[in-house]
Design a protein around this nucleic acid. Structure first.
Lengths: 171, 171
DNA sequence: ATAATACTCTACTAATATTGTCAAGTATTT
DNA sequence: AAATACTTGACAATATTAGTAGAGTATTAT
């Protein structure tokens, strides 16, 4: 249950490949595709979406390829996934326009909402920089555990917020 | 993205209905189905699975129905969902028998692993009792934020663990 | 006994979303 | 002008989910 789409996974991996080279020469689709065993055609779709979302820029012609539009610490995993797969919506009730009319609706609805916000908070707090530093996740865990924040805008969605209140923490 | 199956959602709601009556008379499928606008046949599948997992017991004959096998505080949402939808596996790489051979594999793999453990921790810490008390989620958040634990076995998977180390926290 | 109530089991189908391919075209640089 | 690389949109294959159907088994009240 709760599977992440391959599109989202490939997208993150592709962004990671591009970030590796940052700042520097554009990264060609062919190169990314080779490193990940994904077809060029499929990757084109994915990168095209990411470009339209403003996360990457493309350079045409020989020697062309893709570049990050922002610094790695300014691009969160959450942004990448939302760009490709749309917003996190664990249940239909999370959609604004769908009322939860049943008696217990509010209870379970609150549950899913809290979980969704928790997940979003995690994904928004994690950036490409964290992936690049390699010790990223472990280190970040330490930082957060010790109430020290990493750099970048992602801190505003930091894990400290998860349990502060219902209905405000997520992005 | 990251949708929860309706099966899992219905299952949690059904368990909630049964828990409401606990301890007391068995709850008939027909009643649960009526309260949730789900077909009896579909609910039968779901309850049957939950029964085989040992979360509920059934009583046959007139006046029969379903009962909780344990106390509400001893049944976590995570158990219910795992029973119905299998283990949380955000990516294929989370499956033990699938190697991550690529260069960056370890980095993204760690990311998904950390997220998965975070989700499981949340779901395992939340019990039917929390749903029953109604103020459950808000209150629980306060408790956890203030380092006070609620009763029940769920505390061992409490949110404090999420960032302690990689690869050990989840259930 | 037997009828009513309620759970059990398995197979199957319909709908939906994901995943990925294909082909033709457009832009840029050497 | 040729090579390289990105762009676009339609489409097909596959997998999963969601839900139905129907025949059967067990239990209890009368």
């Amino acid at each position: 249950m709760l599977k992440l789409s391959t599109k989202g996974q490939y997208g993150v991996r592709a962004m990671f490949e591009i970030a590796r080279r940052h700042p520097g020469e554009p990264v060609a689709i062919k190169e990314i595709a080779a490193r990940q065993d994904v077809s060029v055609a499929y990757l084109e779709q994915i990168l095209n979406t990411l470009r339209k979302s403003g996360l990457i820029a493309s350079v045409r012609g020989p020697g062309g390829g893709y570049l990050l539009s922002r610094q790695p610490e300014e691009i969160s995993i959450g942004e990448i996934l939302r760009s490709l797969d749309g917003p996190i919506a664990l249940t239909a009730c999370q959609d604004p326009m769908e009322g939860c009319v049943r008696a217990d609706g509010c209870v379970t609805s609150l549950l899913w909402k809290a979980l969704g916000e928790k997940i979003e908070g995690f994904l928004d707090a994690m950036t490409l920089r964290d992936l690049l530093t390699g010790n990223s996740i472990k280190q970040k865990q330490k930082d957060l555990y010790g109430h020290k924040y990493a750099s970048g805008e992602a801190q505003k969605a930091g894990q400290q917020m998860f349990f502060e209140k219902t209905g405000k923490a997520g992005a």
